[in-house]
């Protein structure tokens, strides 16, 4: 059973130390990683996914339940407690979607009798996030950027079904983001979001701030921010509606701006 995953600080790009020497993520935590473009956010979650042991360019180390995780986590996907949704928006894989998901379900889980069910639930999840539905017969390489991200999110949640999920800038995916957050929250896991999005950041228990490759501080979401997050949510919903209207080729002249005005 995974109870916690810990990150031991290393150093930034220029060798300056991470200013937070240890972070313990507990089951149920929702955490964001924020910082300017190029500040090392992706690198930080890659360290976690690789179970870094001082062997990555950052010198960071990862512990699971307080100790060094077994090599099996890296060498056997069925034992790996981490799912990572990367920034990639295209697949190089030349397989049909069905074959891809079947293969991934097979290597990620021990129970072969549930593969068909896993594949159809994954597809259903992904199609709740996309505009145009994904079909199992299409090839992975034909999927659009948004469809690829939706499929990766669904794959990480349903196929991998791991206690720890790392998500890299899901807001840029062109998918139904608030629906994605809702669906994700139904699953009790550690969620670590790399994000530029205030809504996601304020939904988190705390955020990790990055600069020049190093961790500079941890900011716990305080009372005032929790109050703000209600308004942020409303503004964000309004922006989503606007976005959706534009997508559907509609005009905006009679659009209700009251939510922010």
């Amino acid at each position: 059973m995974i109870e916690s995953i810990s990150l031991l600080g290393g150093h930034g790009r220029g060798g300056e130390p991470d200013l937070v020497s240890r972070i313990d993520f507990q089951m149920g935590d929702v955490v964001s990683i924020v910082g300017p473009t190029g500040s090392g956010k992706t690198t930080l979650i890659n360290d976690m996914e690789l179970f870094a042991d001082g062997n990555t360019p950052t010198g960071r180390r990862v512990l699971v339940n307080g100790v060094r995780p077994p090599a099996e986590f890296r060498n056997n996907p069925a034992a790996n407690p981490i799912a990572l949704i990367t920034q990639h928006t295209s697949f190089l894989s030349d397989l049909p979607v069905r074959e891809f998901l079947k293969t991934h379900a097979r290597i990620r889980s021990a129970d072969p009798s549930r593969i068909a069910d896993t594949v159809s639930r994954t597809l259903a999840f992904a199609n709740e996030l996309t505009g145009e539905p994904i079909v199992l017969e299409s090839r992975m390489t034909e999927l659009s950027g948004g469809q690829s991200r939706a499929l990766l999110i669904a794959d990480a949640t349903i196929v991998c079904d791991t206690p720890i999920v790392l998500l890299d800038e899901v807001e840029n995916a062109g998918i139904h983001r608030s629906r994605a957050l809702e669906l994700l929250r139904e699953h009790r896991k550690v969620f670590i979001f790399v994000t530029h999005d205030p809504r996601i950041a304020l939904l988190s228990d705390y955020r990790i701030v990055m600069k020049q490759g190093a961790i500079t501080q941890l900011l716990h979401t305080d009372e005032q921010e929790r109050r703000c997050s209600v308004t942020v949510g409303r503004v964000d919903d309004m922006m989503s509606t606007l976005r959706e209207r534009i997508r559907l080729g509609q005009r905006l002249q009679d659009f209700e701006m009251g939510a922010v005005a």
Binding site: E49, L84, I85, L92, F100, R108, A156
Partner: peptide, 8 residues
């Protein structure tokens, strides 16, 4: 590549 592709 993504983690999923790597595992497949």
């Amino acid at each position: 590549v993504s983690q999923a592709e790597r595992e497949v």
